[in-house]
Amino acid sequence: MIKGHASLHAAAIALAASLVAGCAASPSRVDPFEPMNRAFYQVHDAVDTAVMKPAIQVYIDVVPQPIRKSVSNFFNNIEDFISAINDLLQGDLDRFGNDMGRVTLNTGWGLGGLIDLASMLGIERGNQDFGLTFGKWGLDQGPYLFVPLLGPTTFRDGAGWIVRLYVGPVGYISDVPLRNSIYGVGAVDLRAQVTETSQIIDTAALDRYVFIRNAYLQRRRYLLYDGKPPPEPEEQQ
């Protein structure tokens, strides 16, 4: 019994020591797991180059642009509904009206979300998700994480992803091939939407890992503060 405790203590000390060592090697507060994240990023980038990019190129070459736009609109309409749920959780009735109005309009009059009539009328997307709701509730963003195939996130946003997965609706489709096809098309659509961004990052970045991390964290901060983030202290690292 006592022996068990001792080894537990030893393990805890070893863990603490390795965390301290990790921090010393990479003193960044936001990205304490940088070595691991960088390794995951390399894996992600390799898969992206070998599989995703060629697949996206085929998708863009074969599927006409209006259809691709409709696919984006369809998935965006679902996310607008998720955004409306989060508006409620945040107590933002103003934005809830906006997002729910978008969903009603686009689902009812825009052929089930295939046409984004609301954007044409200048009603902008709310872009809220569970990670942002947790943030508005006061949860700390926690360490940055890069997840292969899924991309950049933080502990808080990752928790948001998990909640999002349970909310559905695609996850509740019982026909497995249909469900997986929808997930697949969704992934292709998502990747196709960032094709231009990823090409720009290839030119602009000095170190793509750092560029993506900074851009992600800046974007999330911007959304968390509803487009009006307070100025960041310059000496942040």
């Binding site: 000095l206 170190d207 900074n214 851009a215 800046q218 974007r219 901060r221 911007y222 690292q237």
Partner: peptide, 15 residues
């Protein structure tokens, strides 16, 4: 989209 070019490069330059 809320991502400032200058701020993004500040961290890259620092690194």
């Amino acid at each position: 989209g809320g991502v400032s070019l200058v701020t993004n490069y500040r961290d890259e330059f620092n690194e």
